[in-house]
Design a protein around this nucleic acid. Sequence first.
DNA 1: TCTCCTCGCACATTTGAATAGA
DNA 2: ATCTATTCAAATGTGCGAGGAG
Length: 539
Amino acid sequence: MLQEKSLSESEDGFTAAQAAGHVESAAGSPALGVSGLSTSLSSPQSQDPEQTIENIKVYLHEKELWKKFHEAGTEMIITKAGRRMFPSYKVKVTGMNPKTKYILLIDIVPADDHRYKFCDNKWMVAGKAEPAMPGRLYVHPDSPATGAHWMRQLVSFQKLKLTNNHLDPFGHIILNSMHKYQPRLHIVKADENNAFGSKNTAFCTHVFSETAFISVTSYQNHKITQLKIENNPFAKGFRGSDDSDLRVARLQSKEYPVISKSIMRQRLISSHPGQLSSKSDLNALHSSHQGLQHYQYENGAHMQFAASDAQDLPLNTFTAQRDSGLFYHCLKRRGARHLELPCKRSYLDPSSSMADDHYFRSPPPYDQQMLSPPYRNEVTPREACMYSTSGAEIGGVSGVEDLPPPPPPPLSCNMWTSVAPYTSYSVQTMETVPYQPFPTHFTTTTMMPRLPTIAGQASQAPGESHFSVYNQLSQSQARERVPSTSFPRERVHPSLCERKPPSPHTANEFLYSQSFSLSRESSLQYHSGMGTVENWTDG
DNA sequence: TCTCCTCGCACATTTGAATAGA
DNA sequence: ATCTATTCAAATGTGCGAGGAG
């Protein structure tokens, strides 16, 4: 998995905007059973026209499952300690140069600037979004690795975690609850230092519209709960049987199975079918986006987004909201499973989406919202507040393997940054809520595991983006460094909950932060500042 | 009263160390 | 001594639901 080290110096920070070239669409491959959007930037470094980065194609794994969730309105739980995404983000990558090293990373950007609420069994705009959470990147732990490695098997980001803890010390991606987000996959060509800090760094971005979701602290839509339980092995305990129903009922000191609140809510909602039609722009959360979007980078590079197999995508979703007059028998565990309830018809009913498309044609599709003209927010002053290690400057430093491990990240200066909403598309929308400006910059923090070296961070001039580097702690490691209140689980021994300096053993995992900037004019632009990430080695 | 969030719980899977056997 | 397979406990990942904050 890991490759040979390269300790030569790099020159500059990650300057994506310097990566000239264009982007082309990538069609899904039915043979692979996966498909998705694909965007890429060509690189001036690319020598082999057959192996340029724009030839990389990415296919979303378990797309059918994603679509199921998408149709129901995907929700992702966020917790203080961090929660994995389910379905997990897994992709099949092709078209890489087998010998070239790449870095794969994910960021999650706001899909719009709204806050939502789940009302009358549908998502509705509840106001303006909270200030954007500090943008963070999740770098695949295998990064950097050769194209052969990435293409050998599925690339899984299942360990990515989402949190609503603004002070999260673990490097989890920080989100606001009840907000809509869009994950994006970035493939960055590693430079000679196995980093992407050099000039002419090539990268491409891939967006799968069906992976968009609303972050919640508890599930709002019963359909999503059921889908999670049915598909997530860890939730198997909530899959009921008659026996288990009785067992649970006994555990709950009830003679008979009970009906959960969610079932009751569903029942209530179902009894008011007239309220189920939706004007929420979230209704469109799941309509497919077809067509190609073309973007120009400030350096002249172009980018296109293509719904590679948009024909496979459902026209829309939130089936429950559509079939207002219909009922289905929903099953509920914890006592209520196998009780026939007057809920709406099953969301698994494949015919439902076909029959009820018209319910969603009026409101702007969710995808279209994300395709809406970008908006601009204030750039928060916090953006300039970045954690800086005591190590060497990021830029142009090599051989930092010899540096002592950096101090643990403070609770969190660099985390207060703004995040640009997802603005990858720019088609007109029927959105009735006017878009607000979106920030010209957003800073992201990158987790860089398995890196044996660490580099410091250059000071940052106002308005400039940069990288900051510090230890990325594994969950267990991090638990040893934060107050126990962050981790209610009893298994965390109190004595382990004190903050303490990272040991040399933990120094091989790093948390990088970097800044991207997005400009309204170019729809999607990546700027780099003075900083750079150094020595992404294979340790 | 309502919405949203936190926390502890039970249950399941995953992981990794210890052990046995070839 | 090494490698592989098995076992088992700990760690981790789930949704549920009570209760609290605002």
